[in-house]
């Protein structure tokens, strides 16, 4: 399959990329890892008139800690997986990146693209919702910081303007006694999730839940945040009854659809079970386990 013709330009830096996007009058599309965009173009589901290739912009592929964790938009999934800071302190990101597509796709696919593509089946959105992340967007009038709760508008739609570029993801420093986990049920390696659940939580000295975030993959037109489930956990000990109630609430807030991956009723139960397991795993990690 061959995509429709398009004009193509390599951006030298972020300012140049914004200039190119602006000059295209809304017809431009950013090419990062291309692992979602190129298949869409081959199926002619997307036919951008102009591609702005940002792969050669230096400085967008760094991971650094500056109080918070800062992940450059061009960081490849394979590099996120192998990063020593991420491996040591952000296990939920390792969980997430390792179940995205397959190892070959992960050599190209970028974290920024996984978010900006805004596919509810993508895995990072739920994790970033759980982590209470923010994304940095740069456009012709400067830079703005967008809380992840405000980022996703609809399937394949974010609040990014046509000449704005996602440049960085910022993740708050995890508090003491915190842990997270992302669990995904997939039919086979490389498939999108039947369902996926991300849980990030912190425990106080008595073992009660303080800050907590729960995100769900493939549970609506965008990844969703399970606020009621978070509310049930907050301030409570993580006993079986509380975890079960939170998991039931997460399923109640989810709106999966029936498709070739299973009927909606089945997916709701998968979400319930994955939420329970992800909470338990997050608690185990918060208390020094795996």
């Amino acid at each position: 399959m061959i995509p429709a013709s398009f004009e193509y330009a390599v951006a030298r830096d972020v300012a140049h990329a914004i200039e190119l996007l602006t000059s295209s009058g809304g017809e431009g599309k950013v090419l990062a890892g291309g692992q979602s965009l190129i298949p869409l173009m081959k199926f002619r589901l997307a036919q951008p008139a102009f591609l702005v290739d940002i792969n050669r912009i230096s400085g967008l592929a760094q991971i650094r800690e500056n109080g918070d964790l800062r992940i450059g938009a061009l960081v490849r999934e394979a590099d996120l997986d192998m990063n020593p800071i991420v491996r040591e302190r952000y296990q939920i990101l390792v969980d997430t990146t390792r179940v995205i597509a397959d190892p070959l796709v992960r050599n190209m696919a970028t974290v920024g693209g996984n978010l900006a593509h805004a596919d509810p089946a993508n895995d990072h959105p739920a994790t970033m919702l759980a982590l209470r992340a923010s994304v940095v967007a740069r456009g012709p009038t400067g830079e703005r910081l967008i809380p992840i709760d405000e980022f996703f508008v609809d399937t394949f739609t974010t609040v990014l303007g046509p000449n704005e570029i996602l440049t960085e993801i910022r993740i708050p420093k995890p508090p003491a006694r915190s842990g997270g986990a992302y669990l995904k049920l997939e039919r086979k390696v490389g498939d999108f999730a039947i369902a996926g659940v991300a849980v990030m939580l912190a425990l106080d000295e008595k073992g009660k839940v303080g800050a907590v975030g729960i995100g769900v993959t493939n549970a609506g037109p965008t990844a969703i945040r399970a606020r009621k489930a978070e509310e049930i956990l907050r301030g409570q000990a993580t006993d079986d009854k509380t975890i079960a109630a939170a998991a039931a609430a997460a399923a109640g807030e989810s709106k999966p659809w029936s498709d070739l991956r299973g009927p909606a009723e089945y997916k709701l139960d998968v979400i319930r079970v994955l939420t329970q397991r992800a909470i338990r795993k997050a608690v185990a990690r918060a208390t020094g386990g795996k």
Partner: peptide, 18 residues
């Protein structure tokens, strides 16, 4: 699959210009 700058990638999902 080919190696592009040393990394294994699916060459049906990369443009030659890249």
């Amino acid at each position: 699959t080919v190696l592009l700058n040393g990394r294994a990638v699916k060459s049906c999902t990369v443009f030659a210009v890249q």
